[in-house]
């Protein structure tokens, strides 16, 4: 489903080339629950951004659902992100002036989905992520855990191929973090593919496949 071959990414920092990723090969199958771990600056976020089509590799090829997405135009990338990728960010990234419902609806609105169909999906998403009582609240009226649940519901609204979560518990207390992980695991149980970037070994241990990244290379790839 996701196949990275020889992916490399270099940045120019102060005139000096920094190799964030060097020739990474990676395959992720449908329904996997995978964590990417490593110290900060190891390239794990860069890897996630490339999988999420927010960043482009300097070398290598990326196949998503058997389609080469390495050389797509900017607009096509936006379309693929909309259809196939669900993002969950450390800082939630909810639009502050929109209600929880409107935030969840956003990708569907951008995709121009019919309002009746949106309503149907929203009802299901609100129920699934326990947000029925919070639909009309704005992010500043929601707890951190609720915000992240809204973000996960938003990520799931388009029925994506993969959910990419970048330190999803990094901005939450332990208890709420556990709760958010439970929600992500529920997505996995329902057949979704979940990729989590974290530096927390405890979270990594809960996943079924653990990737360690160091200095831009995958150094270990363990499976249960």
């Amino acid at each position: 489903m996701i196949r990275l071959t020889g992916i490399a990414r270099t940045f120019l920092v102060g005139g000096e080339e920094v190799h964030a990723l060097r020739a990474v090969d990676l395959e992720i199958a449908r329904g996997e629950y995978l964590s990417i771990m490593g110290p900060s600056g190891s390239g794990k976020s860069t890897l996630l951004n490339i999988i999420g089509l927010l960043d482009r590799p300097n070398a290598g090829t990326y196949e998503l659902d058997a389609r080469d997405v390495t050389a797509l135009s900017d607009d096509e990338l936006a379309r693929v992100r909309r259809e196939k990728i669900g993002f969950v960010f450390q800082f939630f990234h909810l639009v502050p002036r929109l209600t929880a419902l409107q935030n969840i609806e956003l990708p569907m609105v951008l995709a121009g989905i019919d309002p009746a169909e949106r309503k149907r999906r929203l009802a299901r998403l609100l129920a699934e992520y326990g947000l029925e009582g919070r639909a009309g609240h704005r992010p500043d009226q929601l707890s951190g855990g609720q915000c992240q649940r809204v973000a996960i519901a938003r990520a799931m609204s388009m029925g994506p191929t993969v959910i990419l979560a970048d330190e999803p518990t990094g901005n939450l207390d332990r208890h709420t973090g556990q709760e958010v992980l439970n929600v992500l695991e529920q997505v996995h149980h329902n057949g979704g593919t979940v990729v989590i970037v974290t530096h927390d070994p405890e979270i990594g241990a809960r996943s079924h496949r653990r990737l360690r990244v160091l200095d831009g290379a995958v150094v270990s790839d363990e499976r249960d």
Partner: peptide
Amino acid sequence: TSEIGLLRAVGATRRG
């Protein structure tokens, strides 16, 4: 700015 980043991440095109 960060909201624009989010909109782009969830599928808004530059033109959008």
